[in-house]
Amino acid sequence: MVSAREARAGWLFVLPWVVGFLLLTAGPMLYSLGLSFTHYDLLRPARPAGLTNYREILQDERAAKALWNTVFFTLLHVPLLIVLALGLASLLRRAGRSAGFFRTVLFLPTMTPPVALAALFLLLLNGQNGAINAMLGWFGFTGPQWTTDPAWIKPGLVLMSLWTVGSTAVLYLAALTRVPGERYEAARLDGASPWRQFWHVTLPGISGTVYFTLIVNTIASLQVFTEAYTMFFGARPSTPAEGDAALFYVIYLFQEAFGSLRMGYASALAWVLFLVIAAITALQVRLSRDYVQYEDRS
């Protein structure tokens, strides 16, 4: 039996969130849906535009380029992030008493403000005298022009993002320690090799966590903005080749909204992004049903 007093108290406590939801989420979403059918530049009142904005997106080569760049970055970044984080977490798991120290070292890069990270990696990734190509040189490789060759700009950005793999690795480490030890013992008794143990015990045991990071990092990568914007956009008029290779969807949205003041068009771009992200997330949820085992958590 829910008492009226208790219900009233409950509603009062959650009221701030309800107000915020209406003011900063649901309201704005409806507002932007409405705006997406108008032309609006802040100076003059919005003019109805019907489906013009959406039709323009279909023919907008920069929007298509931006979407492609973003999908390409995501497809490269997310799998590499997950594999690297898993590898590092497995190492930390076996590190014994020094695990705490190495966990700190791996986690620290995630604290770096992305603007500082981007400024630093502009120099580290520099094709002529950057430290990364110098290191590749020790092993006899000639590194690419990470910051100027359009073909290598996105891989360079992925490489930079992987420096902040630490938080995902720490999350996996926590998941690894929750996999019951008996399962490994049983596998060993069956004569399973370490590789088979990984595939048949470890991976199923942490599949829920891996799946969570897949979804969250896909959503985040599809909105990649700060590092690429810092490196290739802003006050500097970027040379077309570099600018186009690093033109991600949210950067384009940002330019249309706050550079060109095309609020209606930017709102249509935002809704397209929302639908793309929702569709990809729904697909991932559907696929996960076949692969994810939910581990016991208590």
Binding site: P28, L35, L42, S267, A270
Partner: peptide, 18 residues
């Protein structure tokens, strides 16, 4: 709302503050 891409409300929230 945790899954909601922040980029989607960027423009309308700016217009509210405006």
């Amino acid at each position: 709302t945790m899954m909601l891409p922040a980029a989607v409300t960027m423009v309308p929230v700016y217009l509210e503050w405006h």
